[in-house]
Design a protein around this nucleic acid. Structure first.
Lengths: 164, 164
DNA sequence: GATAAACTAACGAACGTTCGTTTTAAACAC
DNA sequence: GTGTTTAAAACGAACGTTCGTTAGTTTATC
């Protein structure tokens, strides 16, 4: 709350005017806002116009922008690893289930074998979040752009060989 | 500290007998102990006897055991994402740099192209930690064993086709 | 009897919250 | 336009709790 107070320029007491439910409501708002942000900047593209390849590319590009090239963590991943996860676990996992299903559908539309869609979608998210996690562990983030390119190649968006 | 007190069965005050440096020393001890544990249960195998393939397989298997099949987080990944990371960032990233270098060396020894070693080692760790992260997001962990198998295949340890 | 290792009790600081008050700003009366 | 009313939105001050820590005392161990 000290961080929120500083970030907003408001006294802690003033935060209670906007969030009468206190700390819990603030955190819940942050989680829901993060879901909305991820939807708007990343997964929304799964249902835009254009061919499937473009849409999948936009999702990967969107994740890059959303995380600022790996410099910024995803709040949902942080929450999911914290001790307060229980209160939001079901909401978060339901959301990721839905995102994976939508990504899978688009992958199949792109040409992926139908029974591979789910696992390729899962694998793609693991690649993205894995690069974020390892970036943190290395105190760096160059690996994130590598992972995005690898993901494109793995899906079949890029056919450029490794050495380019 | 309340958690430590409960876990050890000691009063909070008694913890100061073992860790006069207080909270900071306790956290530092936990971080160092985790590094030791990861070394002992995972990365140690990179330099055991036997051919490179076996050793790499032992590392992957060791990670599976270390995380209890994805049920348990890696403390280093949690710390690296928290606000106290600054105090330990350099220690953690130096350690992961070293582990990646050692894994890369073993991968090359196994047959990986020398200039691919570093990126394949990085990619492997991203796969492991990515599956952990997504497992948390999904509130599940079946994906971790999938990721381990995928990693084996990606490295070339398994030549079994996908449909098996 | 001495040293290590536990305990109880308490402290100050930070946290999360509540309270009552003041400022801001839009709506209305004159 | 000026003055009044009203509700929203900010504030400072305080409260009780939890946290990290210290002090002094007792129990265990050798």
């Amino acid at each position: 709350m000290a961080v929120l107070s500083h970030a907003t320029g408001l006294q802690k007491a003033s935060l209670y005017h906007h969030f009468p439910g206190g700390k819990n409501e603030m955190l819940e708002t942050a989680v829901l806002a993060t879901i909305v942000e991820l939807e708007r900047r990343v997964f929304r593209f799964l249902e835009t116009n254009g061919d499937a390849a473009d849409r999948i590319g936009q999702v990967l590009e969107g994740f890059d922008v959303y995380t600022n090239g790996g410099r910024r963590s995803c709040l949902l991943a942080v929450i999911a690893q914290s001790s307060v996860a229980e209160n939001f676990q079901s909401r978060i996992s339901a959301q990721f289930d839905a995102w994976i299903a939508r990504l899978s559908k688009t992958l199949v539309e792109f040409g992926c074998e139908p029974n591979r869609g789910d696992s390729l979608a899962l694998e793609t998210l693991e690649t993205l979040y894995g690069s974020l996690a390892v970036g943190r562990l290395l105190g760096s983030f160059e690996n994130v752009s590598f992972a995005l390119r690898r993901s494109r190649r793995n899906i079949g968006l890029d056919t450029t060989p490794d050495f380019l």
